[in-house]
Design a protein around this nucleic acid. Structure first.
Length: 961
RNA sequence: GCGGGGAUGCCGGAGCGGUCAAACGGGCAUGGCUAAGGACCAUGUGGCUUAGUGCCUACGAAGGUUCGAAUCCUUCUCCCCGCACCA
C-alpha cells in the first residue's frame, strides 16, 4: 500500500509550540489537585549536547510526569542546568572563549534538544546554577553554615588531581583516581581547605535505609558512611596518652605491637633519636608513591623506637610507623593483633614481630550451631524424614565434627545440635559421631587453631539409631564416606538427600572471626561479643577507654582552585583574620576577567581580589577558591519551587507545598556523591529552620545504563555514540521515545539498537494511518474486554516503571483494534494510553478525532473491571488453536500432496458448536479458507473422510479440501 | 578480598513453581502484493515425527527438593557494577 509520508517533524513542532504557547505544563501551588514533584537529575550542559543516555533518562521521567498529570495530579516537572564546573572551564580555555558564553550556548542547545524530545517540562521554572541569582544563594547558605559551625577551614591531607589542578572531595576519588580523569592518580597534599561538616550528620544520613530507594543505592550509601562501633583505648607512649580505635577490644590480650600511620601529623613525636634516620628514610620512600600505588603496595613500616603500654596487661609494645594505617580514620593509630587480623599478621611476619598465642578460639559451639541450623532447617522445611550424616575429608582431619553423640557425654557441639533440633522440632535419637582425635586437635592446640578456618565441604546425615557408640558394622552399614569432593557429593546427595554443603578453610592465616576468649585473664572463656562489652566497661571504669562509634564518611571538602564556580564569600584580613562577607554584600560576583593557566584563576583578577575588610575597613583580600559544583546541585530542587525569588532562596510556603520530591530519577553513579550531599543539605537546612522535612527525595528510580550498539559503554573514543537528535530527524521523536522504552526494562542496562527504532516507527506509521482514516464502530465485547484489561495493566506497568511491558501491551491492543474496529470513545482511551509514550502523534490524532483540549491534559482512563471478560479470552485462545491446527494441516498437505486447499470443515462437540460458529469469520480470515462448522452429531454434515470422530473438547476435528 | 546484580532461542529481551519450546521486537525463511525491488500483509523459525499428533533435547554447569523447575535450594564457572589496607 502506498502511503503518504507523514511529516513528523511538522507535527512535532506544531505540538511543542502549542504546549509552550498555552503553558500546558506550567503549574502553580494554587491548584486544587494533589501535588506531585517529579524530577530528573539535572544535567551538566556539555558542549556536545544531549547523548542517548540523557534521552533515556528524560523520557523515563517525562512518561511518568505525563502519566501522573493525566491521573489528576498537579505535577511539578522542571528542568535546569548544573552549569558551573570544570569541563566548561577547560573547554572554554581550549576554545579561547569565556566559560559563561560557552555554557550559555551549551544550555541553549540542551534546551532545544530537550524540547525536540517533547519533554513536558515547566520551562518557566528553569534554574541555572551559574546565574548570580542562583549562586548568590549558595554563598548565603555557605555563610549560614559558617555561622552555625557547619563550615570549617582546616589543614589536612587532601586529594589533589593534577589534571583538574584542584583538590577533590573524598567522594570524587574513585579507586585512587580522579572521577573525571580515570587515568590520573590522585595525589595527597597537606593543604588548608574549606570543609563542610557532613560528618555531623553521619548517624542521621544512615537513615537512608528507610527510604523507598533501590536497595543497591541504599547499600552503597550505607557502606560509604561506614558506621562501626568499637572502643577507644588509651595507650601510654612515653608517658603520654595516645588513643586508638578498635572494633575488636576482645583481642586486647593479643596485642604485640602498635602501628601509627605514616601520614600521622604527630608521627615524629614518637620517633626516638636513634630511629630518626631510619624513619625519615622510610617516609621519603613513601612520598614518591601516589595513593593508588599505596593501595597496591605491600605493608611496610619502620620501628619508631618508642614503646606503648597495654593498658590492661601492662605489656610493653613496640610502636611502628606503617603505610597501611589510615591517618584520618579513627585516631590514625592501631593496636596490632597479628593472630587475629590479617593485616597485622602480614606485617608481623614481614618484620618478624612475635605473633604470640591466640586469644580467640573458634567457638565450636556457636559456629556449629549456625551451620547446623542452616542445614537442618533446610531439611525440616521439606518435612523430610530422611537421614543425613556428617562427612569429613581425610585431607583435613582437623575439622571439628559438627555433631557428636548425644548420649550423655555431650560435647559443646552436641549441645548445639540438640538445641537446634529441638528448635526446629526435628526428632533425633542419635547423631553419628565421626570423632576420633579430631576434637582435641581442633579445640585444644592453640598453636594450630588460628590456622584452621572452615572451608571444606561437609555433608550431614542424621542416623536414626539407638543410643551409644556406632560399631564398625554400623559404620559399614551407613557408609561413612571418605571420597573426593564431587564423588561424595554426588553419592550422598543421591542416596541420602544432600542438605547442604558447608565450607571450611585450612590456610595459614589469622583467625579473624569472633570466637571464645582464651589467654585473656579474667575475660577468658567469654564469647567475643560479650567480651567486647565487658572489656569496654572495664576500661571505662578505669578511665582507660570508652565506647565510641566511627564513621568512614569524611567532611566534605568544598573548595576548588578553579574559576568556573561559586566564589566562596570569605575575606581575609591581616588584622581580623577570616571574615565572612556580610549578607548585604551578596552575591560576590564572579569576576569576568581572569587569566587561566597559572594557579588559581581568581587570584589574577586584581581589582576583584583586593577589597576592604568588612570589620575594620582596612585592605583585605578575597578568598580565591570557588565551591565544588556539588554544592550547587545540593539544593537546586528547592529552587525549582520558587525559582524567581529575589529576596530569599525560596519561599517556605511554596516549599511546604511542593517538597519533598515524590519521584527522583537518575543514574546510580551519584549514590555516594550528589545523593549524600543533597540529603545532608536538607537536614542541615532543616536544622537552620529553612525546611520542615528531613529527606529530599521520597522515591528514587535508577535507570539502567545505555550501551552502544557494540555493547560497550557509549564514548566518543569508541565512536559508538548515538545522537538523539539525529534519530529524531530520521525517525521522529515519538519513535525514539517508543524505542527507548522498548529496549528493556528501564532499570536494566540495555544496548542501543537502531533496528528497534525502525520497528517503532513502523508501529507509529500504522497508528497514524489507522486513525487518519478512522471510522468508529461499536466496540465488540471482546474489544472492550481487551481495552479494559489493557488500561488496568498498562496503568500498573507505568506506575512500576515497567514501560517495556506497557508498550508491548499497547502494541497487542492496537492489533486487535486494527482487526476489529472500535468505538470513538475507546479510540480515545487508546490514544490516551499511548500518549505518554508518543505525545506528538497522540495530540495530532486526538485533534483529528475531535478531542477537546490537549490529550496531554486529558484524564487518564480507568479500567472497568466488569468488562474484562476472561471467558472471551479463553475462547479466543481456543479459536487461535484451531486456526493454527488448520494452517498446520494446510502446510502438511501442500508440502506433501501439492494440493490447493480451499475449504475447511470443522466438527465440534455439540456444546462448542456455537462458539466456533460465531468465530467463523475470524477463522476464515486468518486461514484464507471457506469455513464450515458442524456439530459432530449433525446428521447433515459434510464429512467425506469421516474425520468428525476425532473431535475432542476444545479440539474440533477438521477436514480440508 | 567484601558487597550488589546478572547468565534464557541467531540477536535484543520477557517470564521467576504447573497454562513454557518460552511474550514482544529484531534477524532470517517461505508465500502474497509488485514488472521488479522497497514498503506492506500472512505464515514459519530447537530436533525428529504427524492431516492438526506424539516424542526427544533445551533457559551458564553440576547436583538436589517437588507429583511437577527457566523459575526454589546447594556448589561451581563466567560477566557486569560498586567499595577497597576503615583497625
Amino acid at each position: 500500500m502506498e502511503e503518504d509520508k507523514i511529516d513528523f517533524s511538522e507535527i512535532e513542532k506544531k505540538w511543542q509550540e502549542r504546549w509552550e504557547k498555552n503553558k500546558a505544563f506550567v503549574v502553580s501551588e494554587k491548584s486544587g489537585k494533589k501535588k506531585f514533584f517529579n524530577l530528573e537529575m539535572f544535567p551538566y550542559p556539555s558542549g556536545f549536547g544531549l547523548h542517548m543516555g540523557h534521552a533515556l533518562n528524560y523520557t523515563i521521567g517525562d512518561i511518568y510526569a505525563r502519566f501522573k498529570r493525566m491521573k489528576g495530579f498537579n505535577v511539578l516537572y522542571p528542568m535546569g542546568y548544573d552549569a558551573f564546573g570544570l569541563p566548561a572551564e577547560n573547554a572554554a580555555i581550549k576554545a579561547g572563549e569565556h566559560p559563561g558564553k560557552y555554557t550559555e550556548k551549551s544550555m541553549a542547545n540542551f534546551m532545544s534538544q530537550q524540547k525536540a524530545l517533547g519533554l513536558s517540562y515547566d520551562w518557566s521554572r528553569i534554574v541555572k546554577t551559574c546565574a548570580p541569582e542562583y549562586y548568590g544563594w549558595n554563598q548565603y547558605f555557605f555563610l549560614k553554615f559558617f555561622e552555625n559551625g557547619l563550615v570549617e577551614r582546616k589543614k589536612s591531607s587532601v586529594n589533589f588531581c593534577a589534571k583538574c589542578n584542584t583538590v577533590l572531595a573524598n567522594e570524587q576519588v574513585h579507586s585512587g583516581k580522579c572521577w573525571r580523569h580515570e587515568d590520573t592518580d590522585v595525589e595527597i597534599k597537606q593543604l588548608e581547605q574549606w570543609f563542610i561538616k557532613t560528618t555531623k550528620y553521619s548517624e542521621e544520613l544512615l537513615g537512608v535505609s528507610k527510604l523507598e530507594w533501590p536497595e543497591r543505592i541504599k547499600l552503597m550509601q550505607e557502606n560509604w558512611i561506614g558506621k562501626s562501633e568499637g572502643v577507644e583505648i588509651d595507650f601510654l607512649i612515653n608517658n603520654e596518652i595516645w588513643k586508638i580505635f578498635t572494633t575488636r577490644a576482645d583481642t586486647i590480650f593479643g596485642v604485640t605491637f602498635m602501628v601509627v600511620s605514616s601520614q600521622h601529623p604527630r608521627l615524629m613525636e614518637l620517633v626516638t633519636e636513634k630511629q630518626k634516620k631510619e624513619v625519615e628514610k622510610f617516609l621519603k620512600k613513601l612520598k614518591s608513591v601516589s595513593e593508588k600505588e599505596l593501595e597496591e603496595t605491600e605493608k611496610e613500616g619502620v620501628f619508631t623506637g618508642s614503646y606503648a603500654v597495654n593498658p590492661i596487661t601492662g605489656e610493653k609494645l613496640p610502636v611502628y610507623a606503617g603505610n597501611f594505617v589510615l591517618a584520618d580514620y579513627g585516631s590514625g593509630m592501631v593496636m596490632a593483633v597479628p593472630a587475629h587480623d590479617s593485616r597485622d599478621f602480614e606485617f608481623a611476619k614481614k618484620y618478624k614481630i612475635p605473633i604470640k598465642e591466640v586469644v580467640i578460639l573458634v567457638d565450636g559451639e556457636e559456629h556449629e550451631k549456625e551451620e547446623f541450623r542452616r542445614t537442618i532447617s533446610a531439611v525440616v522445611q521439606r518435612k523430610s524424614d530422611k537421614k543425613f550424616m556428617l562427612v569429613r575429608w581425610k585431607e583435613f582431619p582437623w575439622i571439628a565434627p559438627v555433631v557428636g553423640g548425644i548420649d550423655g557425654d555431650e560435647s559443646a557441639g552436641d549441645a548445639a545440635v540438640r538445641e537446634v533440633l529441638e528448635e526446629t522440632g526435628y526428632k533425633v535419637r542419635f547423631v553419628r559421631n565421626l570423632g576420633g582425635e579430631i576434637e582435641s586437635h581442633f579445640f585444644a592446640d592453640n598453636k594450630k587453631v588460628w590456622r584452621h578456618r572452615v572451608d571444606q565441604p561437609v555433608l550431614l546425615e542424621l542416623v536414626d539409631q539407638k543410643h551409644g557408640e556406632v560399631s564398625a558394622e554400623e559404620n559399614r552399614k551407613h557408609e561413612v564416606i571418605w571420597l573426593d569432593e564431587s564423588e561424595a557429593i554426588r553419592k550422598i546427595t543421591h542416596k541420602y538427600n544432600s542438605v547442604g554443603i558447608l565450607r571450611y578453610s585450612g590456610k595459614e592465616e589469622a583467625y579473624t572471626s569472633y570466637g571464645r576468649l582464651v589467654n585473656s585473664g579474667e575475660f577468658s572463656g567469654l564469647k567475643s561479643e560479650e567480651a567486647i562489652e565487658r572489656i569496654a566497661s572495664y576500661l571505662e571504669k578505669k578511665k582507660l577507654g570508652r565506647k565510641t562509634v566511627n564513621f568512614k564518611l569524611r567532611d566534605w571538602l568544598v573548595s576548588r582552585q578553579r574559576y568556573w564556580g561559586t566564589p566562596i564569600p570569605i575575606i581575609y584580613c591581616d588584622k581580623c583574620g577570616i571574615v565572612p562577607v556580610p549578607e548585604k554584600d551578596l552575591p560576590v560576583l564572579l569576576p569576568d576577567k581572569v587569566k587561566f593557566g597559572k594557579g588559581n584563576p581568581l587570584a589574577t583578577a586584581k581589582s576583584w581580589l583586593e577589597t576592604k575588610c568588612p570589620k575594620c575597613g582596612k585592605k583585605a583580600r578575597r578568598e580565591t577558591d570557588t565551591m565544588d559544583t556539588f554544592f550547587d546541585s545540593s539544593w537546586y530542587y528547592l529552587r525549582y519551587c520558587d525559582n524567581e525569588n529575589k529576596k530569599k532562596p525560596f519561599n517556605s510556603r511554596k516549599i511546604d507545598y511542593w517538597m519533598p520530591v515524590d519521584q527522583y530519577i537518575g543514574g546510580a553513579e551519584h549514590a555516594c556523591m550528589h545523593l549524600i550531599y543533597a540529603r545532608f543539605f536538607t537536614k542541615a537546612l532543616r536544622d537552620l529552620g529553612f525546611l520542615k522535612f528531613s529527606e529530599p527525595f521520597t522515591k528514587l528510580f535508577n535507570q539502567g545504563m545505555l550501551h552502544g550498539a557494540d555493547g560497550n559503554k557509549m564514548s566518543k573514543s569508541l565512536g559508538n555514540v548515538v545522537n538523539p537528535i539525529e534519530m529524531i530527524e530520521k525517525y521522529s521523536a515519538d519513535s525514539l521515545r517508543l524505542n527507548l522504552m522498548s529496549l528493556a526494562s528501564p532499570d536494566r542496562d540495555s544496548v542501543w539498537n537502531e533496528n528497534g527504532i525502525e520497528s517503532s516507527l513502523r508501529f507509529i506509521n500504522k497508528l497514524v494511518n489507522y486513525f487518519s482514516e478512522f471510522k468508529p464502530n461499536k466496540s465488540s465485547e471482546k474489544v472492550e474486554s481487551k481495552i479494559n484489561k489493557a488500561i488496568k495493566e498498562v496503568t500498573e506497568d507505568i506506575e512500576n516503571f515497567k514501560y517495556n511491558l506497557a508498550v508491548i501491551k499497547l502494541r497487542a491492543l492496537f492489533e486487535v483494534i486494527e482487526q476489529e474496529g472500535i468505538s470513538k470513545n475507546d479510540s480515545e482511551t487508546f490514544l490516551k494510553l499511548i500518549s505518554v509514550f508518543c505525545p506528538h502523534i497522540a495530540e495530532e490524532l486526538w485533534e483529528k478525532l475531535g478531542g477537546k483540549g490537549f490529550i496531554s491534559l486529558a484524564e487518564w482512563p480507568v479500567a472497568d473491571e466488569k468488562k474484562i471478560n476472561l471467558k472471551l479470552e479463553e475462547e479466543e485462545k481456543k479459536v487461535d488453536r484451531l486456526i493454527s491446527d488448520i494452517l498446520n494441516i494446510v502446510k502438511i498437505i501442500s508440502e506433501r500432496e501439492k494440493k490447493k486447499v480451499g475449504k475447511a470443515y470443522v466438527y465440534t462437540i455439540p456444546p462448542e458448536l456455537k462458539m466456533y460458529q460465531e468465530n467463523k469469520g475470524v477463522i476464515s480470515k486468518k486461514t484464507g479458507l471457506e469455513i464450515f462448522v458442524f456439530a459432530v452429531n449433525d446428521k447433515s454434515k459434510i464429512d467425506p473422510e469421516n474425520k468428525a470422530g476425532k473431535a475432542k473438547p476444545e479440539k474440533p476435528a477438521i477436514y480440508l479440501e
